[in-house]
Simulated assay, not measured.
Amino acid sequence: MARADTLAHARELERPELAYLVRFPTPDGVRETGLTWTELARDTAWATERLRGHGLASGQRALLTASGFEGFWGQAVIGALCTLRVTYGIAEAMGWDHRRTTVFHRELHPDAVIGLSAETLEGLSGTADVGEMFRPTRVVLARPAAVPVLRRAGVPACVLAAVGPALALECPERGGAHVNAAEWRVGERDGELHVAAGELRTSPLAETPLGIRGRVAGGRCACGSEDPRVLLAVADSSSSPRS
């Protein structure tokens, strides 16, 4: 059977509504919640608008650094890049794969680098100047521990972070990382974040402390979004909203 016929047949088969079982750390141990295909489609649509807000568009190129277990947000970002018709390459976010990041960065000349980790930067530091490497990149979305390193090197990085099972993605205004308010309820207590499933979420999740230090900013962002923004403690020291 030809590949096209096989794929067409596969699309007709029934599949479980559950797409991922998302496991995430909390102060009381690992918790888990489901992620359905319908929820993933909505997460993808939200990520698409977030990346479009960074100016990503058809014909551009991106480098995504992510690990397989991060599929609950990685697939949403990949789906967003596909929707925007942005060509992308993927490298592992662990430090041992920093050479792949170097190769993709050199060959793709990416307009965006998404998901840079502190481990990747540490691996690169022995072979490259991360400032020289990423300053020409128009959009850099990095994990919280990597953001201060990049900003000290003159790279105006924005935050991308997993807040439990939710994805937090900072807009160009750099006033905190947005969380989809239609899907998640995020809050803070005693300087630490907690999260719960929103009304649209089929997969239940009661309010769950995350042990992540930070605060939540409400109100309308300068980018126009009404989504809440999380300001993570590790990035606060070098993060300030743009005027």
Rank of each mutant, 00 (worst) to 15 (best):
residue 172 P to D: 15
residue 133 M to Y: 11
residue 72 F to K: 04
residue 44 T to Q: 10
residue 107 E to W: 08
residue 88 Y to R: 08
residue 100 R to M: 14
residue 107 E to K: 05
residue 81 L to V: 11
residue 179 V to H: 04
residue 124 L to F: 11
residue 115 G to E: 08
residue 80 A to C: 13
residue 63 L to Q: 07
residue 116 L to K: 08
residue 146 A to G: 02
residue 150 L to S: 07
residue 55 G to M: 04
residue 49 E to Y: 08
residue 97 D to E: 09
residue 89 G to C: 11
residue 94 M to S: 01
residue 81 L to T: 07
residue 125 S to M: 00
residue 133 M to A: 12
residue 94 M to E: 12
residue 137 T to H: 07
residue 111 D to A: 05
residue 45 A to C: 08
residue 132 E to R: 13
residue 75 Q to C: 15
residue 148 P to G: 02
residue 78 I to V: 12
residue 123 G to Q: 06
residue 126 G to C: 00
residue 39 E to D: 12
residue 148 P to I: 14
residue 40 L to N: 15
residue 80 A to G: 13
residue 133 M to F: 11
residue 147 V to N: 02
residue 167 L to N: 03
residue 70 E to Q: 15
residue 37 W to Y: 15
residue 55 G to T: 05
residue 162 A to N: 02
residue 82 C to N: 10
residue 48 T to H: 11
residue 83 T to H: 13
residue 37 W to R: 09
residue 159 V to M: 14
residue 145 A to K: 07
residue 174 R to A: 10
residue 156 P to D: 14
residue 139 V to L: 00
residue 61 R to H: 08
residue 61 R to F: 08
residue 128 A to F: 03
residue 48 T to W: 07
residue 177 A to R: 10
residue 159 V to G: 09
residue 95 G to I: 04
residue 63 L to R: 08
residue 105 H to E: 12
residue 89 G to N: 06
residue 84 L to D: 08
residue 57 A to G: 02
residue 128 A to D: 14
residue 65 T to R: 04
residue 140 V to G: 02
residue 159 V to L: 14
residue 169 L to R: 13
residue 88 Y to P: 09
residue 150 L to A: 10
residue 48 T to C: 12
residue 88 Y to Q: 06
residue 76 A to G: 12
residue 106 R to L: 10
residue 168 A to S: 05
residue 78 I to L: 15
residue 64 L to V: 10
residue 57 A to L: 07
residue 177 A to Q: 11
residue 99 R to N: 07
residue 152 R to Y: 01
residue 68 G to T: 14
residue 126 G to H: 05
residue 128 A to L: 03
residue 50 R to V: 02
residue 36 T to I: 02
residue 93 A to P: 01
residue 170 E to H: 03
residue 115 G to W: 09
residue 109 H to E: 15
residue 171 C to E: 08
residue 176 G to H: 07
residue 81 L to D: 07
residue 125 S to I: 04
residue 70 E to N: 09
residue 65 T to N: 03
residue 98 H to P: 00
residue 121 L to K: 05
residue 73 W to N: 00
residue 94 M to D: 07
residue 129 D to K: 08
residue 145 A to M: 03
residue 161 A to K: 06
residue 50 R to P: 01
residue 121 L to D: 06
residue 148 P to F: 14
residue 83 T to Q: 12
residue 96 W to P: 05
residue 70 E to Y: 03
residue 179 V to C: 01
residue 123 G to P: 00
residue 156 P to K: 11
residue 74 G to H: 06
residue 177 A to Y: 02
residue 112 A to T: 11
residue 45 A to R: 15
residue 43 D to H: 12
residue 63 L to N: 11
residue 44 T to A: 12
residue 171 C to D: 15
residue 95 G to H: 00
residue 133 M to L: 15
residue 135 R to L: 06
residue 50 R to D: 05
residue 129 D to P: 00
residue 141 L to S: 10
residue 66 A to S: 11
residue 96 W to N: 09
residue 137 T to F: 02
residue 67 S to Q: 12
residue 125 S to D: 00
residue 82 C to G: 10
residue 116 L to P: 07
residue 68 G to P: 14
residue 36 T to Q: 12
residue 76 A to S: 14
residue 166 A to C: 13
residue 122 E to C: 01
residue 126 G to W: 01
residue 41 A to H: 03
residue 172 P to C: 08
residue 108 L to V: 01
residue 147 V to D: 02
residue 91 A to M: 11
residue 98 H to A: 09
residue 36 T to C: 02
residue 153 A to G: 05
residue 52 R to E: 09
residue 132 E to Y: 00
residue 160 L to Y: 01
residue 120 T to N: 14
residue 165 P to K: 08
